[in-house]
């Protein structure tokens, strides 16, 4: 009967390395951000297009939007199911999310104003994204602070 694992601890850590790699986390965050930002941007172009559009153009806009949403879904799935985001990663990801939300809102608003369709809707949608991003930033900082506080409590208990 085999009473020892064949893989050493080092082997196991090496097998887990791809899951913990920085590149994979960046890829997941980028896919989510680019997908959401792209979907908002293309939808704004579509919505603010002057005059009636031919069927093919509608189809093209719809396909672009669907493609961006698919990337956003892929990024979201990676972040929630496949790639572990630890407290420090969460803080960084939340700030990237906030920056991307602000940038997307700015670009979409400028496009809407230049096309004369009014900035109201663009600002409303962008504001919603920014608000969600701010909530994520606050939550990430609170979670990290709570963990740091618990670590200090446990360290203090260990070294009286």
């Amino acid at each position: 009967m085999n009473n020892e694992p064949r893989r050493s601890a080092q082997d196991m850590i090496e097998h887990l390395a791809p899951v913990l790699s920085l590149r994979r986390r960046i890829r997941a965050v980028t896919a989510l951000m680019a997908g959401v930002a792209g979907a908002v941007f293309v939808s704004t172009l579509w919505w603010s297009e002057p005059g009636p559009l031919p069927g093919r153009t509608h189809l093209a806009f719809a396909l672009f939007t669907a493609l961006c949403l698919a990337w956003a879904a892929y990024g979201g799935w990676l972040l929630t199911r496949r790639v572990p985001l630890f407290a420090a990663d969460r803080v960084i990801a939340a700030w990237i999310g906030l920056a991307a939300s602000l940038a997307t809102t700015a670009v979409v608003t400028v496009v809407a104003v230049r096309r004369g369709t009014g900035a109201g809707l663009a600002l409303a949608v962008g504001g919603l994204f920014v608000a969600v991003a701010v909530v994520l930033v606050v939550r990430a900082h609170l979670r990290r602070a709570a963990l740091l506080r618990r670590m200090r409590e446990l360290t203090g208990r260990g070294n009286p």
């Binding site: 694992p5 601890a9 196991m12 850590i13 887990l16 913990l20 630890f86 407290a87 420090a88 990663d89 990290r144 963990l147 740091l148 618990r150 670590m151 446990l154 360290t155 260990g158």
Partner: peptide, 30 residues
């Protein structure tokens, strides 16, 4: 160091704490 402290440190993003947790619980799990 307690398991809880190792877990908290790993959750904060310390790779060393995660490796230590794995080393400590690898055999019981296996």
């Amino acid at each position: 160091m307690t398991d809880e402290l190792l877990v908290v440190r790993a959750q904060l993003g310390e790779r060393g704490a995660l490796a230590e947790l794995l080393a400590r619980w690898r055999m019981p799990v296996w």
